[in-house]
């Protein structure tokens, strides 16, 4: 494997976004790119990451190799990379370590780290192709704000999606709160759009602790997409350049 990223920033942010949810996971490398799928310890949420080969310049992977990595250790190594550094990830055929090289843009500093790999026997889950009843795209920062505000009211949020908009409702000991985002197109700045497509109305409850955890990915994408169907896990997607993505799935709470 040899994969070079123009800026370490992307990889730093992806790892930062998932490291509190999953601790040890395999980065599955093959000729289509680097993928990761892992559940949290409670088996409530699942993270699915894809960094396509096109995300890297260049990308080369001759064989399928799983790189079993302790994300806490990887975070320690990635601290040494500046966001604008060129990052190269390298690994041998049957590796004991993964090699990470950080180069300053002005080429006068090269840092090289070897991170020990782990043998991780990870369950792989089949995620069914789902035609979601409702999908809602919104500014990622708005979603983060809503989740963190409502977490102060309650540990759960009910998300209701209709043609009129998407409503987040929390009921707690101190009182209730709700936030509605209505569909709109911002002609000046499409990053501010709220876009809803719906085949049938949806209402589901989710743990805000997990949702606020997913929002650690906010810096990766201007927009976030929520995909919902009644009685299936919510998908929260942060789309990245070159068809790469970071997706979180969250099992619903049993409603009232």
């Amino acid at each position: 494997l040899e994969a070079r990223l123009e800026a370490a920033d992307l990889f730093k942010k992806v790892v930062e976004a998932i490291k509190d949810l999953v601790q040890h996971c395999n980065f599955d490398c093959n000729d289509s790119g680097i993928a990761l799928q892992a559940m949290d310890n409670s088996h409530v949420a699942l993270v699915s990451m894809m960094l396509t080969a096109d995300t890297f310049t260049p990308f080369r992977c001759d064989r399928n190799i799983p790189l079993g990595i302790d994300l806490t250790s990887l975070t320690k190594v990635l601290r040494a990379a500046q966001s604008s550094d060129i990052l190269t990830i390298k690994s041998e055929d049957a590796p004991d370590v993964v090699n990470l090289v950080f180069e300053g843009k002005d080429q006068d500093r090269i840092s090289e780290y070897d991170l020990k790999l782990m043998d991780i026997d990870q369950e792989h889950l089949g995620i069914p192709d789902t035609e979601y009843a409702a999908t809602a795209s919104m500014p990622a920062a708005d979603f983060k704000r809503i989740c963190s505000d409502l977490l102060l009211i309650s540990e759960a949020v009910s998300i209701e999606c209709t043609k009129e908009g998407i409503t987040f409702k929390a009921e707690g000991d101190i009182g209730n709160g709700s936030v509605t985002l209505r569909q709109h197109s911002d002609l000046e700045n499409s990053d501010k759009n709220v876009d809803i497509s719906l085949t049938e109305p949806v209402a589901l409850s989710f743990s805000l602790k997990y949702l606020t955890g997913f929002c650690k990915a906010t810096g990766l994408s201007n927009q976030v997409r929520l995909c919902l169907s009644n009685d299936v896990p919510l998908m929260v997607e942060y789309a990245l350049a070159n068809n790469s993505y970071l997706r979180f799935y969250l099992a619903p709470k049993i409603g009232d």
Binding site: V44, S205, K253
Partner: peptide
């Protein structure tokens, strides 16, 4: 986690 479903109830092991 009261009232919380598991992701394993929806996605099957491959």
């Amino acid at each position: 986690l009261k009232g919380q479903k598991s992701i394993l109830g929806f996605f099957s092991k491959t």
